[in-house]
Design a protein around this nucleic acid. Structure first.
Lengths: 309, 309
DNA sequence: GAGCCATGTGAAAAAACCTCACAGAAGGTC
DNA sequence: GACCTTCTGTGAGGTTTTTTCACATGGCTC
């Protein structure tokens, strides 16, 4: 046989979803099943593979090193499958297409989207997840959400409206943190990066008024924010985590932010086309502004964060 | 929800296997199920997607254009999943690792492998499918099977033993062929290429003693031989098909080769490391030589091929 | 220690999947 | 043209996998 028998694809998908979300309950929500189903699938996968994929207490489950590796490799494969499958053309009105980072969609936008839908049931919204640059026309995008620091070179004609502060700060597993950490201690730890925002460390260093960012003892780069966050939770090092993305993990104690968060020079902006922004697009942008204003601020710098909302 | 509901992953996998093999029966063999199971999965997929994926009479099923597109996109995704899944370390003796083209493995090597296993049950063989260059040490390969023309620039130290002629010739769907085709007619049709052997057309032109290959009216490139072959069967154009790969499709009438096949300057070679080829590796190479010698030759040039064996 | 949260699990139900056996369709052979 | 071969479609029924529900368990916070 050309291919050997693989473990159940459904189990792999369940594990991949768990990898991204970091919690079985959320993965189960995404797959529209109960947490029990996901729990069983993952356990079955571990048995079949003979590899431990998760570790830690039930309430603070983390990926093992092998689990992280597997999940990271599975994500793009499932993305590819999803992209390959032709979709029915929606009969209804043309949806408003919003482009944003996968992690931002997962952790911030999608949980709030029902409120927009409730206010404007006549405007269907489609979230297009994308890491990189975009083209309003070619990609059929109406509005893009991006992080932008003042240094960002803008290579396109567009209107960028900041709608939320980009609070960020070093986060790590509780085991790695001490009660009062110094910058030196932080800098002595392995650094975790994401490909989508490699300047995070230097940005943050500037925010804490540090001219010179000491070179890292070691660095590890991830394709997605969510795997960087899972790696931090697994104790692999320190990441500069955006507040919006790590809020829940701080609350549940999977992560700690000993130095708190600072409001960076970067802002989270809503980008609209320079000419033809539709009425619906502007409505959505205004809604983003109001949601951004009502998103709680993080505990401020220099105190051991204990999460909370 | 971040992701929408996908159709059954098992159905997608069944369809992907069908796409590669071109026949449900073979796909079913690969997946270790009955042909009925594959048939149902594919029909279910078509219904769920609302897209026709296969067409043609039952005995000569082909992919539709949409089916080809889907299958081509799914293949690398499933490859990635397969590569990502950690495998148990085999307890037994270290297997002999043979690297070759996926299509060569599927259509020639794997069907013959049982004979080697029967003769040498003590030597486990693992087939590593790969398109590109290889590195004996880095990839843990003992022996590589490649196509090589005399022009190939050899950038590595190795011993290449030719073991089979590389017969090839233009193949197409029966509907596109006429009873006595001329070269001019062939050249007037769209050409199909594979990325793994883009020189196929110019190589073949030289074999039929043609100095100048006329430019193509149109070209389409595929990542794998098997999709190029399926595209030819679907009537998308003419491909230069290696005899070993299209033998069964000619026999079943899915393809015809109006000009027959010519023995190219390229040979199929077994490449072994220059220094430490093990006893097992040499045994395998010798077996390849004998299998190559006993593989039937194709009908020779300039007559309308009607398949046969 | 009461309360909360997330996962683990037994048993039963539901869904998905597969097999078997036969039918039908197309092509090749003599 | 009758017959044979090959491959897919399908009805009925069985098997396996997956899911659910409800409750247990373990860790954490206050």
């Amino acid at each position: 046989m050309a291919r050997r028998q693989l473990p159940s694809l459904n189990a792999l998908r369940a594990f991949e979803a768990f990898g991204r979300h970091g919690r079985m309950t959320l993965a189960a929500d995404e797959l529209c099943v109960t947490h029990g189903a996901v729990s069983r699938q993952i356990r079955q996968l571990e048995e079949q593979l003979g590899v431990t994929l998760t570790e830690g207490p039930r309430s603070r489950l983390r990926l093992t090193a092998e689990g992280l590796k597997l999940a990271q490799a599975l994500s793009p494969a499932f993305d590819q499958i999803e992209a390959a499958v032709p979709r029915h053309v929606q009969a209804g009105p043309k949806p408003l297409v919003v482009s944003c980072l996968p992690t931002f969609a997962m952790k911030w936008l999608i949980p709030r989207l029902p409120r927009f839908q409730a206010a404007h049931p006549e405007i269907p919204v489609r979230v297009a997840e994308s890491n990189g640059p975009f083209d309003f026309k070619a990609d059929g995008i109406d509005l893009a959400i991006r992080m932008r620091s003042p240094d960002t070179v803008v290579t396109y004609e567009a209107v960028a409206t900041p709608f939320m502060e980009h609070y960020h700060g070093p986060v790590m597993a509780p085991e790695l943190a001490t009660s009062s950490m110094t910058l030196e201690q932080i800098f002595a730890m392995p650094r975790l990066l994401t490909r989508t925002f490699v300047e995070s460390w230097s940005d943050w260093a500037r925010n804490v008024e540090l001219d010179h960012l000491p070179p890292a003892v070691s660095e590890q780069e991830f394709d997605h924010y969510f795997y960087m966050i899972e790696a931090a939770a697994a104790g692999l090092g320190v990441a500069i985590g955006p507040w919006a993305f790590v809020q829940r993990d701080l609350a549940s104690g999977r992560l700690v932010a000993p130095l708190g968060f600072t409001s960076g020079r970067a802002k989270i902006v809503a980008v609209t086309p320079p000419d033809g922004a539709t009425q619906e697009t502007l409505l959505f942008r205004d809604w983003l502004l109001s949601e951004g204003a009502s998103t709680p601020s993080p505990p401020q710098a220099a105190c051991r964060s204990r999460g909370g909302r």
